[in-house]
Design a binder for these strands. Structure first.
Length: 580
RNA sequence: GUCCCGGUAGCUCAGUAGGAUAGAGCGGCCGCCUCCUAAGCGGCAGGUCACAGGUUCGAUUCCUGUUCGGGACACCA
């Protein structure tokens, strides 16, 4: 519709130039904007001001000429010059209600856009499977899941993926932690390493290992301590590495039992947690599979062939400084092990050859230093780094009773996502997590969120939906006739009704902007605006009036609001309750 | 030291492809239920958009500098 209006202005401008009335050396495209203030009409354009300079005329004079040449259209009721040279447009009332009709027609698809043929992969959460998800992961999950919905609504072909870090040292630490709890459960006296994982879930896993495994229990903790440096603050890493080495040696093939048990149990917990949270994935990609398939070695060879590697101090380095990084990065340590970064390079290579036009990563903001690095790797492998988009999510700070809660997976004193959901519910969780810009700190006040008070904006939006449902339930005798309602929409003349229709019309644009800019929070603000428009209208006007034409027109408008709220909340993964 | 993110109402925050009188929620004050859910609505008060330059017809928005706050900078994952 805006495009059609813009075309009218282009035509008028063309004519003025053609007739030589104005000379424009720097022609700019016409932009039609929504007005912020109803006093400025429905739409506005600054086209006259943009050309004032090159035409060497006053903006208001140009505006006058343009309005003069504007081709007649039934869309525009009135055009006027305002302020320094804006042209404000008042739409025909019929046009104002067009979005309502469109919304009723498309229903669940209202707000969606046509297919773009763009294949996008989005990777999110990807937390190490070393423990349950905590509230910090929750934000990435909520943000990523909402983006998946938004990008789908935008018409892209989206694939969501979780990268499982099931290889590497952290997993070894996990396995040895479980094994030590196993020994402890078996009655041995152990001293648990400082660098081990300490949560209760580790003890539970140790217990399960004891009950289900076929590990021969002769191994003693003292054996594992052979030649291992003492566990002090300075040597805790070397200490646990020694324990890992000895445990692997003592257990041999059986090492896989604590390892696999822990991985399977924790991953399955993460999967169900995310699923209950409404965060879905098309693919769970294993880091281990990259190692086992030889892709890690292959990518090292490729980098070697391309001349991006060198050796120094016994380690193999990637010359990432050639691609803007501020220092080179180790690919293979002097002890022969590859680093997590090496796997990441193999992973990005794998992703980039799977046919996606665009690859989106959602990372915790503490990873911001890796952006340059991963793009450098992509570039070194011959790919265009522009295909990668990396979005950082600031961790959420959790507050309770005005006090900030400390979180640490290692110490076990963290608050899990599961616990958070249990306390405040999925809806409030999902909404709160994304209502702030992702790269901003989020203070998550548990006391406030658990209070279930009206301060919670999610209730405000849901309440509007529930109210509309109740209205429809209260219809007596003559049922709602949508066609009759649509035919009489122009009977609705109050400012509240016109505002609502206009706001409904903004929804597809909001979806587009939010998807294109990866800004999920826009949906929250939009829904709060829409709900506010509705509550204002509802409060001052009775919907179920005697005159059926007016009643059904109002019901048609209310139904459109209901559809948009439902669709908008669905994007956020929040339910639209029929009653509250 | 280098690099990110930010500084907008008492508080928490929206708002930039540059536009008109800068918005919302909460908190404060004053009102509104014989009526489809008052988990709601209306009104009032509250601002040198951190500071200083620059670009522009026009800057909260873009550029530069300053300042303050948060974070990141491993042969860790």
């Amino acid at each position: 519709m805006k495009d059609a209006v813009a075309a009218l202005f282009e035509k008028a401008l063309d004519q003025l130039v053609e007739e030589g009335i104005i000379q424009v050396t720097d022609r700019k495209p016409v932009k039609i904007e929504n007005t912020r203030d109803p006093a400025h009409g429905d739409l506005a354009t600054n086209i006259a001001m943009l050309h004032a300079k090159s035409a060497q005329m006053a903006a208001r004079a140009i505006a006058e000429l343009i309005i003069d040449k504007l081709p007649p259209s039934e869309m525009i009721r009135h055009a006027e010059i305002a302020g320094p040279g804006f042209i404000n447009l008042y739409l025909a009332q019929k046009i104002t209600f067009e979005p309502v009709i469109s919304c009723l027609k498309h229903n669940k698809k209202y707000g969606n856009h046509g297919g773009t043929n763009e294949r996008i992969q989005i990777e999110y959460v990807s937390a190490n499977p070393t423990g349950p998800l905590h509230v910090g992961h929750g934000r990435g999950a909520a943000y990523g899941a909402t983006l998946v919905n938004l990008l789908n609504a935008r018409g892209h072909d989206v694939e969501a993926e979780y990268y499982v870090n099931d290889a590497g040292r952290q997993m070894d630490i996990l396995a040895v932690s479980v094994f030590l709890r196993y020994l402890e459960n078996a009655g041995q006296c152990i001293s648990f390493p400082t660098a081990g994982y300490r949560g209760d879930y580790i003890t539970d896993l140790g217990n399960r290992l004891l009950q289900n495994s076929s590990i021969s229990p002769q191994i003693t903790f003292n054996e594992l301590l052979q030649n291992v440096i003492a566990d002090t603050e300075e040597t805790k890493d070397a200490h646990i590495d020694g324990l890992i080495k000895n445990t692997k040696h003592c257990l041999g093939e059986e090492w896989r039992q604590p390892f696999n048990l822990a991985l399977a149990a924790i991953l399955s917990d993460i999967k169900s947690d995310l699923s209950e949270f409404g965060a879905t994935f098309d693919q769970w990609f294993s880091e281990k599979s990259l190692v086992e398939s030889g892709e890690v070695d292959a990518v090292i060879a490729t980098l070697e062939d391309r001349g991006h590697l060198y050796e120094k101090a016994g380690a193999l380095w990637f010359k990432s400084t050639n691609f803007g990084d501020d220092k080179d990065r180790v690919i293979r340590k002097d002890n022969g092990e590859t680093t997590y970064f090496t796997s990441d390079i193999a992973y990005i290579a794998n992703k980039l050859t799977r046919g996606f036009n665009r690859i989106i990563y959602i990372w915790g903001s503490d990873h911001h230093g890796y952006i340059v690095r991963i793009k450098a790797a992509a570039q070194a492998l011959g790919f265009n780094p522009e295909r990668l988009t990396i979005r950082l999510v600031q961790f959420a700070n959790l507050y309770k009773d005005g006090e900030r809660l400390q979180m640490s997976t290692r110490s076990g004193s963290f608050v899990t996502l599961r616990a958070l959901r249990a306390e405040i519910g999925r809806d409030a969780c999902r909404y709160f997590y994304v209502m702030r810009k992702a790269d901003q700190h989020l203070d998550f006040d548990l006391s406030l969120a658990t209070s279930q008070s009206k301060d919670n904006p999610v209730y405000y939006v849901q309440y509007a939906h529930a109210r509309i449902c109740r209205v429809f339930e209260s219809i007596d005798e003559t049922p709602f006739d949508q066609t009759r309602g649509i035919n009489h929409l122009t009977d609705l003349t109050t400012q509240e009704e016109l505002d609502l229709a206009t706001t409904i019309g903004l929804f597809p644009e909001v979806v587009k902007r939010a998807a294109d800019g990866l800004e999920a929070h826009l949906v929250c603000y939009y829904l709060q605006d829409l709900a506010a428009d509705f509550h204002r209208w509802y409060n001052g006007n009775r919907l179920l009036v005697e005159t059926l034409e007016v009643r059904d027109a109002r019901l048609a408008l209310a139904k459109a609001v209901q559809i948009v709220i439902r669709n908008g909340l669905a994007l956020l993964g929040v339910s639209a309750p029929r009653s509250m």
